[in-house]
């Protein structure tokens, strides 16, 4: 029994995932300590020069910087297991509480972005694939290319500049949460989601197109067509059904990426998301904040990958059999 559990694929995957997260933890811990300056200099700035040695020592003890690195690492890791992600002295809040505020922002943004990208990318990809190398294919591909080539910060900055005079600036009202002011919240999420979706729709569109073309050349579709199944139905049911696997994989990948990759857009549109939490943490040298937050993002990424993998098995009969 135990042997079967150990040998089971899921167990192995979970073990790999845990190992990966441990690696991320070590990496982020070391990198942070290598950045010049610490929380004392980050908080006091040039005034830190005027601190006496006793004052400096006092502050280092206060921020927990006086302990040996190994002790710092293991006490952080140990605390993680007991659910204590650390404390942000800047925000006077636990990292868990901070994350409880910032993570939903980013997750919501990521979900909206993915929905928008699917809405744009999949139909566009099917349109392109419906008549390869035609004008419409060319047009579809051009959009895809534009999406791949226009960076989010450029699109976001130009959108904001363009809208500046129009009076439409929901993000200037201060962030509204989805639960308290859903309508305002959606307005605030709209532009950043559009900006991100523009970039993410492109790979989804390309994946859809390739997948559809590939599936269409498969024997059973040819047979179905020969049997007289209407092309439109064929398109949606069979072709898209079978192209779902690569599209799902792609989407999962992009979602995982968005958790940590929306940082530029969060910055431009003043969204208090998790990316900004890390950025501010790095600036303020709040080690616990950065370490735990990066680990949370990495966990999200790993989980999304596991989920994609599971979904993939669910959708694709071939994988299920093997």
């Amino acid at each position: 029994m135990i042997r079967r559990i150990i040998r089971h694929r899921l167990t192995r995957r979970l073990a790999t995932a845990l190992g990966t997260l441990l690696g991320v933890a070590i990496l982020v811990f070391i990198m942070l300590r290598a950045i010049p300056g610490d929380q004392v200099t980050a908080q006091f700035g040039l005034e830190a020069a005027g601190l006496t040695e006793a004052q400096r020592a006092q502050l280092e003890a206060y921020y927990g910087l006086d302990r040996p690195l190994v002790v710092q690492f293991f006490s952080w890791l140990g605390n993680l297991f007991s659910g204590n992600l650390g404390f942000s002295s800047r925000a006077q809040m636990s990292v868990a509480a901070l994350t409880a505020q910032s993570l939903p922002v980013t997750v919501e943004l990521a979900v909206l972005t993915i929905v928008l990208s699917l809405l744009i990318g999949v139909p566009l990809g099917m349109l392109s694939a419906s008549k390869p190398n035609s004008l419409r294919d060319g047009l579809g591909q051009t959009v895809g290319l534009a999406g791949l080539s226009i960076p989010a910060f450029l699109l976001g900055s130009s959108l904001l500049a363009w809208l500046a005079g129009s009076g439409f600036n929901p993000n200037g009202l201060g962030y509204a949460s989805l639960t308290q002011q859903p309508w305002l919240n959606l307005q605030q999420m709209l532009l950043p989601a559009v900006v991100l979706a523009f970039g993410i729709a492109a790979p989804i569109m390309r994946t859809t197109r390739t997948a559809v073309l590939e599936v269409r050349s498969l024997d059973f579709i040819r047979t179905a067509r020969a049997k007289g199944v209407p092309v439109r139905r064929l398109q949606w049911r069979h072709v898209l059904g079978n192209a779902l696997v690569p599209i799902t994989t792609m989407t999962g990948l992009q979602f995982g990426y968005l958790l940590g990759g929306a940082i530029v857009v969060e910055q431009i549109f003043s969204l208090p998301g998790i990316g900004r939490q890390v950025l501010i943490g790095i600036q303020q040298k709040e080690y616990a904040v950065v370490q735990s937050t990066v680990l949370i993002i990495a966990t999200g990424f790993v989980l999304v990958n596991l989920a994609t993998d599971a979904l993939y098995r669910l959708i694709d009969p071939r994988v299920r059999v093997s």
Binding site: T20, G23, M31, G275, I297
Partner: peptide, 22 residues
């Protein structure tokens, strides 16, 4: 593969950002 997994799971922009500050 282990190293690859770690680098993949680390948010890419944040990885570059942190490395660039070191």
């Amino acid at each position: 593969s282990g190293v690859t997994n770690v680098l993949f799971a680390f948010p890419p922009l944040l990885l570059a950002l942190t490395l660039a500050s070191v």
